[in-house]
Design a protein around this nucleic acid. Structure first.
Lengths: 139, 139
DNA sequence: CTGGGAACGTTAACCGGTAAACGATCTGCT
DNA sequence: AGCAGATCGTTTACCGGTTAACGTTCCCAG
């Protein structure tokens, strides 16, 4: 297997596991925090808007929303002006998770970047950005 | 969301999509190629060995193996000396995929690293390696 | 005003992955 | 020799994600 693909895959997997563990300490599962983050940034968005913001398909959001609603972290309410739309609203419990989850996430970021010098970190971000752009542009 | 985590997540997703598309052109799904790669490197391994080599749990391998067996790419055969063990053996069809899949994978790696200079690529690999190591060592 | 297309969210069917429980086999110790 | 514990693959039950099909609702052209 090519060098970068191999390394990225391994890093990705262990990073995912670390993020999952961090978020799970607060009763969430990986991905659910992203949906909540979209609502922390702006409450009352629609599933479609959230899906676009989080780079996920709409069905993924509706399933996550169902679970988060069952957990009492958000509420589904119809849009008063357009009945096709559903808007997701944070409950107090959902809003209360913002500080601890964001702290957890920052702590993980710090743990990672602590192993790098400032210039290493800058180079890494630049390279990753280039790769992301190249892939988005397509072949 | 912290900067590196955000960028890595996005890059990871688009990279996964690209790899999936590449491998799907040959009738495979993402992850199945990793299992096959483990057998190309050494045929007749057990699910547990493959799981360790690919950084995946054993049940994941048995499920993939079932699908690959149904597709006629590998065979399950019992170990003659230890009846607990099952060994996975490539069929000719499974072996025939090695060249095209590896080419596809190399092409993707090239497409990615083409956007980087030699030193950028070296720095990227080094930084990713550091991060991987830091996460594996744990908190 | 009315019909047809567009824009939504949801559902269903998959897939890869995990953790936990299960069942069969081997092995080491007394 | 025989039993207890370790080892291994599979099954089951989840979860997040995708694509495709579906049912509503809105909106606009005729």
């Amino acid at each position: 297997m090519p060098e970068f693909l191999e390394l990225h895959s391994k890093t990705s997997k262990v990073l995912r596991a670390a993020a999952d563990a961090a978020v799970q300490r607060h009763g969430l599962r990986l991905g659910q925090d992203h949906l909540l983050a979209a609502l922390w940034a702006e409450d009352g968005r629609t599933p479609g808007e959230i899906a676009a913001a989080v780079n996920v398909t709409t069905p993924a959001v509706t399933k996550l929303a169902t679970r988060l609603a069952e957990a009492g972290l958000l509420e589904r309410r119809p849009d008063p002006r357009d009945n096709r739309l559903v808007r997701l609203w944070l409950t107090p419990a959902g809003r209360a998770l913002q500080v601890p989850i964001e702290a957890e996430r920052q702590q993980l970021e710090d743990r990672i970047t602590a192993t790098l010098t400032k210039t290493e970190r800058a180079h890494l971000l630049k390279a990753l950005g280039k790769i992301h752009q190249a892939l988005v542009d397509g072949p």
